[in-house]
Simulated assay, not measured.
Amino acid sequence: MGSRMGLIGWLVIVVAILQLRGATAETVYTVGDSLGWAVPPNTSYYSTWATTNLQTFLLGDSLEFNWTGTHIVAEVSKADYDNCTKVSSGSASPFKFTPPTVGSYYIICTVDDHCERGQKFSFTVNGSSAEPPTSAASSLTLSALFAVMSTTFIYLFLGLSLN
């Protein structure tokens, strides 16, 4: 009976590991990496950064803005983003932005001509890291769970009837 309980314990551990492998952690992105939130060296710097780093941005992930000097982080509409429209809202460094919903977001600096010089970027939140994955990996996890549970059931009932 003790070996049977040991086997069940190992099966529970295997199932837990398989489930944890399917979970994803939320990510904090440092905007601009080592440059931080500053007037960039070219007007495409943050667009390139956002495209490279945020292709899999998920609900629950955060953007951390770090800067020295005078800058503002402002979330704006697409029209304000396109026109670098000055808005009155802003935040001090460091600032952490966690998008509240899926969708597109537009971020600019409203100080002087910083936006026109490229201190802006847009990104899209595609889903939630808390949602179950819809890939083949989730099917594999469910299949593994079913296999473990089936094996446990067969082992227990066949083992009990053989004694």
Rank of each mutant, 00 (worst) to 15 (best):
C109E: 10
Q119I: 02
E116L: 12
C115Q: 04
R117Q: 08
S129I: 13
A130P: 02
S135H: 01
D113N: 15
F97Q: 02
S89Q: 14
Y105Q: 11
T98G: 00
K120I: 03
S91E: 11
E116R: 03
G127A: 15
D112K: 12
G127Q: 14
A137D: 13
G90R: 10
V111E: 08
P133E: 01
T110Q: 08
S89I: 09
V125Q: 05
F123G: 03
P99C: 09
S128A: 08
G118I: 12
F97W: 03
Y106W: 14
T110S: 10
A136L: 06
D112I: 06
G90P: 05
V111D: 06
T134N: 11
P94C: 04
S129T: 15
S139A: 12
P100C: 01
P100K: 01
G127V: 15
S129W: 12
A92F: 03
Y105G: 11
C109W: 02
A136H: 06
S135I: 01
Y105E: 09
C115W: 00
T134K: 13
C109D: 12
P132H: 04
E131A: 15
P99W: 03
Y105K: 09
S139K: 02
G90L: 12
S139C: 09
E116K: 12
E116V: 10
S89V: 14
G90D: 12
S104L: 10
D113H: 09
K120S: 05
A92W: 02
S91N: 14
G118S: 10
I107E: 08
F123K: 03
I107H: 01
A136Q: 12
K120W: 00
F97M: 04
I107W: 06
T98E: 02
G90Y: 10
R117M: 03
C109Y: 02
F97L: 09
Y105R: 11
P94H: 05
I108M: 01
G127F: 11
S91G: 03
I108H: 01
D112Y: 12
P132V: 05
N126G: 06
S89L: 08
E131I: 08
P133F: 03
F123D: 01
P132S: 02
I107F: 09
A136V: 07
I107A: 06
V125A: 05
P100S: 05
S91V: 04
A130E: 14
Y106S: 09
A130F: 12
S128L: 08
Q119D: 04
T110I: 10
A137G: 13
T101A: 15
V125C: 03
S128H: 10
K96W: 00
S93R: 07
T101G: 07
G90E: 02
A136T: 04
T134R: 10
F95D: 00
E131G: 03
I107K: 01
R117P: 02
S139G: 14
S89P: 02
S104W: 12
A136S: 14
A137C: 08
S138V: 11
K96G: 00
H114Y: 06
P100M: 00
G103A: 06
F121K: 07
S128N: 15
D113Q: 08
V125D: 00
V111C: 10
S128C: 06
S104M: 14
S89K: 07
S104P: 07
S129R: 04
H114V: 05
